[in-house]
Design a protein around this nucleic acid. Structure first.
Lengths: 347, 347
DNA sequence: CTGTTAGCGCGTTCAG
DNA sequence: CTGAACGCGCTAACAG
């Protein structure tokens, strides 16, 4: 009822005055770290209620010299992969009572650096960078960042920065597993579809060369590079480029570096009138929601994005609290759905 | 060279000491709001460089009594709709040199309120809530929020909170336009697909009833409710439920309340061996990336998510700077792609 | 043009 | 158990 229509938010001083105590006492009941006589505690609590008092975290952090905000930088929001990783991060961050400062670099190295700098100024306790563009950023830059604040990279295979932590997937092993699975189904003519501008494509291609080469099946022409691999247009470009490749090379299976390409491959086969998986088997990589939305549902390798995010938070927080840097590697697991099946021989 | 390996970040005091000036002078060159003799300015600048000094925004804001952080609350990240709106928000926020505190309510009203409270404690300058769950939250709650901080709702049709701002799409008009388009193509037997737990479905259904009723074509059975409409499983559930409905009712066109349902409808028709758009036309709503990824590409109504986000930021900032609340309504425009075509009569 | 000082909101000594 | 005073990093007001 005695509702203060005062615009300004209440502070410890206001509460102290109303409760007839000192600001120190207010602080004590708010934080509950020192004993306070029950009767005065009650008075303070009442005052807090009445004033709708909420402690100012900024002021507290300034005083305590320690932040409870962590920053995250992501290259784009247009690949669900990132959205799902962020979802994992956000959940873990909230559980720990931290807050999340969100920045999107829009696939631009310059903006990526700007984001990091902005985060510094905000006095974050640590930073998580998803799929950083380290190929286009001075190595010194992140080396300097690490001197200032704990840093965790998610899915960065390009270069190691001493002092940073890493949470990755073992995409080399995952790619091998995918290929072995296809081979187990009887496939030999396996097309490999990759993109540009990400180290992960290269890692996967190496696995492909090795597995196929060991069996004497490797053929350079079976590697198709469809260019930019992380945008919406990736699907269409894959669709277009693969129609020709499939007709020329007559593969019985196609392994794609991500699900966007996987869907593009699926569309291409359907445009060609081929049955999937009757005539040709298709595998994606990532297991983003999209892979479950198409018909037939895409068989893929799960990059467990949620876990990527949760692990990154855990590693970061451990580091913030004085622990060491870590390098966690998760295993990709195969999600067997509807686009793969036994090889029926040539078609 | 003289690289201070000191863990602590440099402060104005450090810079002042090194440059042999007072802290006030440092502040002046940093903010450039008062004139400083070029020679001393140079000394200060040099010291800043040498110390890698970055102003502490938290401290500045505490002093200035005004925040440059805005908070955003989103119900989920698993519908690309939200990801794209956030993308718009993030871009606009950065342009204005503000930062974004990100919170995900995971479709839970309780968590939605917790997010808002956490934002208060962080002393945000204002808050944007996307598709709030006002149906399950005390009206008082948001009424109180507005007393403390500027608030903008994106896509909230449920209830008006005095003192809040709104950025919406005119989904009523958009739905009418969609129907008129279908009718112009010769369709009369138009199935309407909706979900639960969002006011937007009801708005669209009203438009459907009105447009169809005016022509004497309305039939209650042509309204199909597929339940939860914003999750990944929405597509599958629509797929399942629509197969029966399409066989029973023999529609020549299907209007869906969002693209997830649109894709489900497309899958259903294809499972039935029907040609889209030859046998039946399908329209989605939203124009999320997914609508461009399926084959054939989905005709849909564009909710211009980017603009939703950018407008929300603009409205919020205007309010923060002392302006009035606003209510902006955007128009949905039709995106004519490959799932709609002229009605060939019954099939 | 430059230096000194007060105070933003808070938690924590240190005295009582 | 409680209160007074200090300082976190910064900017604005006021002197010089």
């Amino acid at each position: 009822m005695a509702d203060e229509t005062n615009k300004k938010n209440a502070t410890v001083v206001d509460v102290a005055r109303l409760a007839q105590v000192s600001v120190a006492t207010v602080s004590r009941v708010v934080n509950g770290n020192y004993s306070v006589r029950p009767s005065t505690k009650a008075r303070v609590t009442a005052a807090i209620q009445q004033l709708h008092y909420v402690p100012n975290v900024q002021a507290r952090e300034l005083n305590l010299q320690h932040s409870t905000t962590i920053g995250v930088v992501v290259p784009s929001l247009y690949n669900m992969f990132f959205a799902e990783v962020i979802d994992g991060i956000e959940g873990a961050v909230r559980e720990q009572q931290y807050s999340l400062l969100f920045n999107c670099a829009k696939n631009d190295p310059q903006q990526e650096m700007d984001c990091i700098r902005a985060l510094f100024a905000r006095n974050v306790a640590g930073i998580i960078v998803i799929s950083p563009n380290t190929a286009h950023i001075h190595a010194d830059f992140y080396a300097d960042v690490v001197k200032r604040t704990p840093l965790v990279f998610i899915n960065n295979g390009w270069q190691q920065i001493p002092g940073a932590s890493y949470v990755d997937n073992d995409e080399r092993q995952g790619s091998r597993a995918a290929l072995e699975y296809l081979i187990g189904l009887g496939h030999e003519r396996i097309l490999f579809v990759r993109g540009v501008n990400s180290d992960s494509y290269t890692v996967k291609e190496e696995a492909y060369r090795q597995v196929m080469g060991a069996r004497g099946w490797f053929d350079e022409r079976f590697i198709v590079n469809i260019g930019e691999g992380n945008s919406v247009s990736t699907v269409d470009r894959t669709h277009d480029m693969l129609q020709a490749a499939v007709q020329d090379l007559q593969p019985t299976a196609i392994l794609c570096c991500n699900d966007l390409m996987g869907v593009g491959a699926l569309n291409a086969c359907q445009s060609l009138g081929l049955d999937v998986p009757g005539d040709v088997s298709i595998m994606g990589y990532d297991n983003i929601a999209l892979s479950r939305l198409v018909v037939p549902k895409l068989t893929t390798m799960d990059q467990n994005m949620q876990e990527l995010g949760r692990n990154a938070v855990q590693v970061l927080l451990a580091r913030i609290k004085g622990g060491k840097t870590q390098h966690i590697t998760l295993q990709n697991t195969l999600v067997d759905r509807e686009t793969t099946g036994p090889c029926k021989g040539s078609f």
